[in-house]
Design a protein around this nucleic acid. Structure first.
Lengths: 236, 236
DNA sequence: TCGCATTTTTCAGTCGACAAGATAAATACA
DNA sequence: TGTATTTATCTTGTCGACTGAAAAATGCGA
């Protein structure tokens, strides 16, 4: 039997219509955290029992995950957690870099007064994670920081792709993540600050350049992790 | 009662597992062709009867369309065909332009021998549509042409977003499309040829520039359609 | 011991039914 | 006659069961 660890799962009753979102969110999280590693078999009956609900809402959640590309279904056979395409990681990096740039550009162009506050709040959270040397928190707060910037850019198409990429990045990082205190480059905090300043000054070109450099940094770090990492030892 | 026009729908039996894809494809097509205009109510029971199958596969198809953003569901109430966000069309144009550029760039960089053949085949189809002054065919063959280029670029993230944008474009064009022979700028054919040449020569920068200009052309034409079009008279 | 055909088992795809929200209709009341 | 409240209807969300297709298990002959 596979992992399929914990946990509670409300023994009580759920509100009508909430069931799907409930299992979707949980499964999605478990996939991105590699609690369900790529290739894991996903059994509908098992999930139905685990969440103590019928197969129907489970199925709907799986269809959504399919749409996100997080699971793959073999026709008439089991559905599995999608594999990470390690051979084509460069396409991922390329798209990630472009989205970093484009969203930051647009934020510099279109941000409104209250956007800055939210962005700075995310940056504070990120700084706290760096200070605490909590790499996992870094990943997630970094995501929120850049997602907030993307929101300020107000292009739903870019936002959608960017979020997808950031999530896939989370999965990749997890994969190559061995120890807690790998290397935590604190210059990220400064780079974030510089990006914020450029956005605030509405300096589109500078924002672009900074985001580009920042993206290169991050991509490089991930590539280092991949190259040097003891890999596949998923701690925690 | 709403439109929900034609048609046959296989009276015979379907193969197991094909049901969902079947209704998904048809509904998707009808939405993009505005046979189901934005805001249309989508009734599961009605569809179930129309396709003579249970509500379950219908439902799954709708969930997929939801993932594509083509339909919207009001909780516990009906699902409707998603509206076109006319107020933010500029975000659409912006993303479309970028994807035109990026995919063409990558095609120039990464295309392989047999890619050119496929691309040229699509271009031939496009030229035929132009010659026939069939604007609807132009839209669809133009889509296939650029989709083929995107495939040659081999970045699944860009391909995904680009296809989504091209489909949304089809819907928008349909919306503002009044007469068959609006204006059919034949220079598109030449522009396509130039793009092909640049890709073949692996001249990335030239391919980028040409794609950029081409995108601007197309965007401009759509904007003209919107501005001058008698609008909302959806013929055919 | 191995390869192939056959049976068994498992699980995805589909179905019909029921129950809970929500809306529209009907009724009561001021 | 207009507004509030109850009732009826309609539709979605969920359920349990059935069916069939593919994989695993079994049997058999070389």
């Amino acid at each position: 039997m596979i992992a399929m660890t914990k946990n509670a799962t409300t023994p009580k009753e759920r509100k009508r219509g909430s069931g799907v979102k409930f299992v979707y969110d949980i499964l999605r999280d478990e996939i991105l955290d590699l609690a369900l590693p790529p290739g894991s078999l996903i059994d509908e009956n098992q999930l139905a029992e685990r969440f103590s609900m019928s197969r129907t809402p489970i199925r709907e959640a799986l269809v959504r995950l399919l749409g996100d590309g997080l699971v793959t279904t073999l026709p008439n056979r089991s559905t599995i957690v999608s594999n990470i395409d390690f051979l084509n990681l460069h396409t991922f990096f390329d798209a990630l870099r472009l989205m970093y740039r484009v969203t930051t550009r647009l934020a510099a162009e279109h941000h409104r007064a209250d956007d800055l506050g939210r962005i700075k709040a995310r940056q504070a959270e990120f700084a706290a994670a760096v200070k605490a040397e909590d790499a996992l928190a870094m990943i997630s707060t970094n995501r929120e920081f850049h997602a907030e910037i993307a929101e300020a850019g107000r292009n739903p198409y870019y936002i959608g792709l960017f979020l997808k990429l950031l999530d896939e990045g989370r999965r990749i990082m997890r994969y190559y993540y061995s120890s807690y205190a790998d290397r935590l480059p604190p210059q990220y905090v400064d780079e974030h600050d510089a990006i914020i300043a450029a956005i605030e000054a509405r300096d589109v070109e500078r924002a672009d350049a900074l985001a580009s450099a920042h993206a290169d940094q991050i991509v490089r770090q991930i590539q280092q992790m991949i190259a040097g990492g003891s890999s596949k030892t998923i701690s925690l």
